[in-house]
Design a protein around this nucleic acid. Structure first.
Lengths: 229, 229
DNA sequence: AGCTAACTGGACGACATCGTCCGCTTATTG
DNA sequence: CAATAAGCGGACGATGTCGTCCAGTTAGCT
């Protein structure tokens, strides 16, 4: 059972916690991460006080809401790894992930951010990373994936697809499929030419640690122990 | 001389107008389109009243500020068309446009939006469209560009690169180069496989008409006469 | 120089959202 | 059932942004 803060919650409190998470899941999926807190509370049928007591910051709520989806994201990588043909697994994974972004505006954004305070949440991201990195190695060895592909390219792609999804979700919601297809073909071996260097994993991690809002202010302070995922 | 609203402005008014545009250009480039109006006014050394009198809405200001850059965007397409090798011109154009997005956070966003009220501004976009469409035709005929490439794919790419730039501008500002290289290779003939259909031009135009903020609310009302650009 | 219309800039009221605080309610325990 | 700690939720002050308004200033004309 995920996220039990302390020993046990009183029954009504636990019920409200679930309601809040469910409501936030819906609202984030439909309208993105910047929905007002009071609206989530209203959707859940609780007061804002209750919401803030259980999730003191928006990041706490976001991490709580998307923990399950993050686990599904990691599972998808594990599934791809189980596929006998690594290249087929790789392609399926790319499409799967882009589809998850298209289905959920909030998650699309979450995948391009880190929440260093949410340990369990970030652990799932790391699990996804390790599986994906292994998938990349195998897909290169098997010959489907170009040699100069870097695992950081997945992050880059997530950021790009987040842009596509954000712009087209209302008016042309299938656009991401074409975009993903283009990218998969670009990743196919042999590469049609040399590429500019991949950003360093640490730089890409710093890119993930940033404000949710469109403003460019940085807030990165602490460091990290694993990767850009 | 662009944008003269009415006959002539008084000298001090004209001077202030220029200051405002210059200040907004800087601030938008650095921090994106969502900067508070009072901050632009402060940067320009004028009061907010002055700012609002000259540019009643934020869109008016944005259109005024980026009119020149939009013209440069159209010029770049014309330049690409002048290139003897259409495929080389195409590649150069893609890179050029992505570079413009990387240099200017505001412009990156502007390229994924329409401002139906700003006639002159949208006229430049149309000029860019016609040049690009012609470039596409020639590049297909000359054999560099895959046959199933659609001009709407440029818009899709602008949205994607806007996502890359927004996420990486601070921490890994060269990432867009690698992204652009991948895409160009994906656009190269022959295609490595079939693609999902391109969104209809009208759908892509509707995707351009949307709120600037990350919220998904629609505001599209009127229609358009030319294309998704 | 003096007149006047145009222009200036900041004070201001409206609004949205945040996050806290506290009096009331309810689950749990003995 | 009574006692009590935990939980509830909405009112509230703080903050940030918008767009307007108007008393004072200045450019341009005669």
């Amino acid at each position: 059972m995920p996220s039990d803060p302390g020993p046990t919650l009183r029954a009504d409190a636990e019920r409200n916690r679930r309601r809040i998470v469910a409501a936030a899941r819906e609202v984030f999926a439909e309208r993105g991460l910047d929905v007002p807190m009071w609206e989530i509370a209203r959707h859940a049928g609780v007061g804002v006080g209750t919401l803030y007591r259980r999730f003191p910051t928006r990041d706490d709520l976001v991490a709580g809401v998307f923990e399950a989806k993050m686990a599904a994201y990691a599972d998808a990588a594990a599934d791809a790894l189980a596929e006998p043909d690594p290249w087929a697994g790789f392609c399926a994974y790319i499409e799967r992930v882009c589809a998850m972004q298209a289905e959920d505006r909030g998650f699309a954004n979450v995948l391009t951010l880190t929440f260093p305070a949410a340990k369990r949440f970030e652990a799932e991201r790391d699990r996804a990373y390790h599986a994906f990195a292994e998938l990349v190695t195998r897909a290169k060895a098997a010959g489907g994936l170009r040699e100069d592909f870097s695992p950081e390219d997945l992050v880059m792609m997530l950021m790009a697809n987040a842009g596509v999804v954000a712009a087209t979700a209302d008016a042309a919601p299938e656009t991401w499929r074409r975009f993903a297809a283009y990218l998969i073909q670009a990743f196919r071996a042999p590469g049609a030419g040399p590429l500019p260097p991949s950003p360093a994993p640490t730089a890409m991690y710093r890119a993930l640690v940033r404000l949710r809002s469109p403003l460019g202010g940085s807030r990165g302070t602490s460091h990290h122990g694993d990767s850009a995922f």
